[in-house]
Each structure stands twice: as C-alpha cells, then as structure tokens.
Nucleic acid binder design. Structure first.
Lengths: 227, 227
DNA sequence: TCCTCAATCAAACGTTTGTTCGAGGTAATA
DNA sequence: TATTACCTCGAACAAACGTTTGATTGAGGA
C-alpha cells in the first residue's frame, strides 16, 4: 500500500522543519528547503502554518509542553528528596532522548528578535519558576536569596541540555568526517561513544550524586554564614 | 593616519557584527544591516573580510583565543586544588563579563552547516581536551572512564555560559518591556537583579563550593564502586 | 446532478540576499 | 608631477527569500 508516506502533509512539514531548524537554525532554512524535504508544495506551508514562524511556534509549543510534563512528574511529595532529584533527572534525560531535535530547536533559537517566540518562552519560564520553588525550599535552600536562586535555578536542565547539544553536534560532525584533517584528529580521540541505555544510567547516577552533593555544599555554606 | 582609518572601518564592522549576531544569530543578519550599523559602505565588508562568514570566523577566532587564555591561567601546579578551581571560575567569569557578546556569538552559532566554523571549533575542543585532562586526574577522577569524562568535561564552562546566556536574553527582554502582558508579569517577578561585582563574587563562591562538593561526590562514588 | 470545501498545485509577486565591479578619492613615494 | 597603494563609494548582478494568487482535484452531502 506504500503507506509509509501516509503521514499527512502538515506532519511532514513539521518533521522536516524540526530536523532542518535543529541543524541549521531557524533563519538559515528557507521554506523551499522545508517543502522539498517534506515532499510538499511550497504553498502548503503557509496554508497550514500561516507564516514561516508559525512552524517555529508550533515546535516550541510542543516542546515546552512535553518538557513540563517531564519535570512535573517527580513522584509526589511522599518520596525522599534524593529520589525526587533522581526521578527528575531520569525524566529529563528521557525527554531529551525522545525529543532531541525539537529540544535543540526550542532551546537554541534566540528569541529576542522574534517577539512571538519571546512571549512563549517568557510564559513558560514564569510557570517553571512558580512550580519549582517549593522543591528548592524543601531542599534547605534559602529561596529568598536571589543570588542563590539565580545560581541553582535551571541548573539540572542546563547540564542535561548541554550534553545533548554536544552530542547532537558531535553526531553530525561524525557524518561529515573525512573532509578535514582537523576533524579526523578530533574523531580519533574519543573513538565511538555509545549513547545507549547503559550510558544514560551511568550518566543519571553521576549527575544525581554530583547535584545532591553540590546542593548540600552550598546549603551547608548558607547555614554557617547565617549562624 | 591611513592605518588608523583602516582599523576604524574594519573594527566598526567587527563590533557591529558582534552585536547583531549575538542578538539575532548569524543567518538572521544581513550585510546591509551590518554596514548600516557600522556606518560603512556595503562593499567594505567583502573588502575586509572576504565574505560574510569571514566576520564570523574572525569573531570566533578572537573569542576562543581569549577563552583559552582565561582557563589556561590557574595559578600553576603549586596551588591547592580548591584554589585552582576557584581561580578558573573567576577567570571564566571575568572572561564572560568582558566578552559577553563575542562569547554569545561563538557559543551559540550552530557550526554543523558552516564547515569553516566547524573546523575552528573542532580544533579548539581538541586543544582543551589535552589541556585539561591532567587537572581531572589530579582531582581523583578516573580519566580513563569515558562516561565520567563525558560528564565532567566542560561542566564549569557550561554552567557559566548558560548564566550569561540567560542574563543576556533577559536584559534584552527588559529593554522591550511594555509590549506584552506576559512579559510584564515576568518582569515584575524578580524585579531588578544587579549583576555587579558583589553578585559575581557570590556567584563564584557558590559555584566553587557546588563544584568541589559535586566532584567529591562522584570521585568518592567511584572509589566505593571499585573497591 | 449539483454544490461545497478542504487539499494541492504551478506560477508569479515584489523584496532582499551575498557578492562583484569599476570609477573615484587620498596620501605617501618616486 | 606622475605613480603607487590603499580606501571608499554607488550601482548592478543573479539567486533566493517569504508570501500570494487563481486554478484544479476529488471526496461527501443534498
């Protein structure tokens, strides 16, 4: 039946745009390239998404929706705090593994000059803020200290995001290997890293230990300062 | 005299491009906009930098040059390890404070589809790798464990970079306040944060404590695992 | 049979893109 | 004075940009 292409046009446009935006950035991709990749007529893009940034808005919306569902589920208030951290970390890693390209687009796109995107980001950031504050308080941090909060907020997401940013870039470099001596040298150095389940189990364990010990370090410091 | 005029135009182009690229991203900025901002004729850009990406290459080159000078100076091998970490953190913060926009451009630009940029990045990453490995070994980490190295490498830079990324975006949002209710709400929430010397002293102290405790956490875990 | 309507298409719209070119200007050197 | 080398400029180029248009298709309801 050749139904592999039976995905409707809108979804194909969406998927093609995600992949291209992730690799090149929003402004570097033209709608003709998207249409070509999605095997769709150019006008279909404006038909379904209104304008080019309409696709971007759709991508970011979907991304943040999934993202907040990931960090929202940390096992209820009954669980131990260490388990809560571990749960969030595992959820975040799972989220990024399943939505790598969408996340790359959403977190890499500079929002300042695209007002529509800026609003979406602001809304989500404000939401995260109110959502996560109780957790930090429970962890013994002083949530009224703006500097401490500025430091600790989003730290987990930052670390995990950067890992996937590096991994994504890296895997695209590997695909283009052979064109440059410098890159060949770089490739040889850490051979082939397998980003499989085992890797991410280890990674989650490391990050959990690191984060918990780190937070203890600064919350302990706080107590001794205020004593 | 003639030489100063030359440096004037070239430097003005460079500065204008840095500012615009940082705000909008490389592809979203046209050379006419750069020329206009720099008060310079369009053809001056190709005259001095050959092509548009020539500016980008110059920016990234200068950025990584300063960046590596920053992390290279950590007080010699005689200093205590804690002091070494603190020194690197302070250097990195100083670097980012003095070169915010250059760093935003260099670290935000997606290199995958701009081969010239990709090579520069690869070269620098490989260089950092060989430079920093001894430090991690000295810290009690198992530098032969690829997962642990994958986790710990570049972590300090990641955290500090993300702070400045947020700050930079934030400050541009503030400039555009008043156009949106969502953004106004967001603005009210954490009022006006002063990113002054005092802030970064506190920030450096927090990060140092956090990092050292975190590293101890995972190196201790390693020992107990292998015992 | 007629009508509706969402989906799709080729073609063209007017701008804007990065780049090139040659003519002019200026100041120091020969 | 003539020559040289370095800057600067306006104009022009083909290509690509995002968007719009009007026509065509085909399935579904009346």
């Amino acid at each position: 039946m050749a139904e592999e292409q039976k995905k409707d046009s809108k979804q194909r446009i969406f998927d093609a745009a995600v992949s291209l935006f992730a690799r090149k950035g929003f402004s570097a991709v033209g709608i003709r390239e998207i249409a070509k990749t999605a095997h769709v007529n150019i006008s279909m893009i404006n038909y379904y998404f209104g304008e080019k940034v309409g696709i971007l808005k759709a991508i970011i919306d979907e991304c943040y929706d999934k993202y907040y569902r990931a960090i929202h589920d940390c096992g209820g208030e009954a669980t131990l705090r260490e388990e809560c951290v571990q749960r969030i970390i595992k959820n975040l890693i799972a989220f990024f593994r399943e939505n790598t390209e969408i996340a790359m687009v959403s977190f890499n796109t500079i929002p300042v000059d695209i007002p529509a995107v800026l609003e979406i980001k602001c809304r989500w950031v404000a939401e995260e803020r109110t959502m996560t504050t109780p957790y930090f308080r429970e962890f013994g941090l002083n949530t009224d200290d703006p500097i401490q909060m500025n430091f600790i907020r989003g730290l987990l997401t930052t670390i995990i995001t950067e890992h996937f940013r590096c991994r994504y870039t890296w895997e695209h470099i590997v695909q283009r290997a052979g064109t440059s001596h410098v890159m060949k040298n770089y490739l040889e150095h850490d051979a082939e890293m397998k980003y499989d389940d085992h890797f991410y189990e280890q990674f989650a364990e490391l990050l959990t230990k690191f984060y918990i010990h780190g937070v203890r370090g600064i919350s302990h410091q706080l107590q001794s300062n205020e004593k």
